[in-house]
Design a protein around this nucleic acid. Structure first.
Lengths: 208, 208
DNA sequence: CATATTTACTGACACCATGTCAAAAGACGC
DNA sequence: GCGTCTTTTGACATGGTGTCAGTAAATATG
């Protein structure tokens, strides 16, 4: 369908958008500015995208894959929970570090457009379901405490999204390891409390 | 300064804004629509606010108090950690339930305006510091495991913000108790693992 | 290697929300 | 009924959006 010229133009525009968002927030992006960074005129933009939100939708698609892939370590029950989760969270932080500016742009733009909002919301909640499913399995074999898995999964996922965007969405980016430690600490404490705190657990206190 | 008439007009506008956001997203709000809901003309708006973001800033201020107040239960070391935290989280969920639409509107509007973005970001991170300080104290007396408190505080706070906005930012609102259970579960597991899981903790597993 | 036809692009336009300002209308003391 | 201060508004300039009729470039056709 897109033989050659068109595909090239389209990808030129995408690159210009990507590059812009690397250094400046979405609110500063206009179709005029975007196309001025290319060889093309402003109307050309509308041949390839409905609007700036459509462009972001495309950019998000390119990131999606990496995130889903990294999550597999834990979601597929290959390795045990703790180390699989650690691996997946590391992969998540890597992707977030790499594509943080795109994620931030999408998250920033989503509230301005009903369609993009839906895409973003769907993207986020898609993880809620699979995480919740994994939690249920671990609860069934007793390695994870009993609690309603879906809302907890949702909370943990929103935390990840919020932190990744906050830490890596703009320059200067936060320390990768610091972020990883923090979210790993919380996920492990919540899902695998019997494994995680063995190193420290001695002082007990008699709280009311 | 604002003798009477002006103050009344201003508060009429604020109410109209609040009412609008109760049922529709910020992206649908324009100065024209807002003022059409009042007895005044569009330019009148600019006598009382710089723009729509300024209006949101004012609305946020009205909510701030409630949140800070509710957090005191845990932040001031009156009661013990677990029950103080539970109390504070319940208060937080209450305020979120009450004013979720405002919080959502501010969070949605923030990326569109540099000033409001700064206000919102400052608002959020103000909790990071105080939460981190409380964690440090609990680590000092050994009831909380050792970890870098600030990034964990930040993660937990972003989780709260994200979940409250997601759950209570638009109608239909989520179940209060479900949300409260989920975030309480995560906060307790992370900060007070030795207290929290006693009920469940028996099945041990030999993971690698 | 002209020229027909499809593909890629653009200049010019209408639209709509914003924010400003000079002037009008209202309130109030006297 | 008249000055003066406060409150409000009609009318305007600006800037970004999305569209469309028409141009130019590429590609096929004889």
């Amino acid at each position: 369908m897109l033989p050659s010229k068109a595909a090239l133009t389209r990808s030129t525009i995408l690159d210009a958008g990507s590059a812009f968002l690397e250094t400046r927030p979405f609110r500063d992006l206009t179709v005029g500015i975007l196309m001025a960074a290319t060889e093309y005129s402003r109307p050309t933009f509308y041949l390839y995208f409905n609007d700036l939100h459509g462009l972001l939708e495309t950019l998000l698609d390119e990131v999606k894959g990496g995130i889903v892939e990294g999550a597999q370590a834990w979601l597929s029950n290959e390795s045990d929970g703790v180390s699989g989760l650690q691996k997946s969270l590391r992969a998540l932080v890597d992707v977030g570090y790499e594509h943080g500016t795109i994620l931030r742009a999408v998250s920033n733009a989503a509230p301005r457009d009903s369609r993009l909002e839906h895409v973003w919301e769907t993207f986020l909640s898609s993880f809620d379901e699979v995480v919740s499913a994994r939690i249920e399995q671990d609860q069934a074999i007793g390695v994870t405490p009993e609690f309603d898995p879906l809302p907890v999964a949702r909370a943990l996922n929103r935390m990840d999204a919020g932190i990744l965007i906050n830490a890596f969405g703009a320059h200067p980016k936060a320390e990768k390891e610091e972020v990883l430690s923090a979210i790993t600490c919380i996920w492990l404490a919540t899902l695998y409390p019997f494994d995680a705190q063995l190193v420290v657990g001695d002082k007990s206190n008699g709280s009311a």
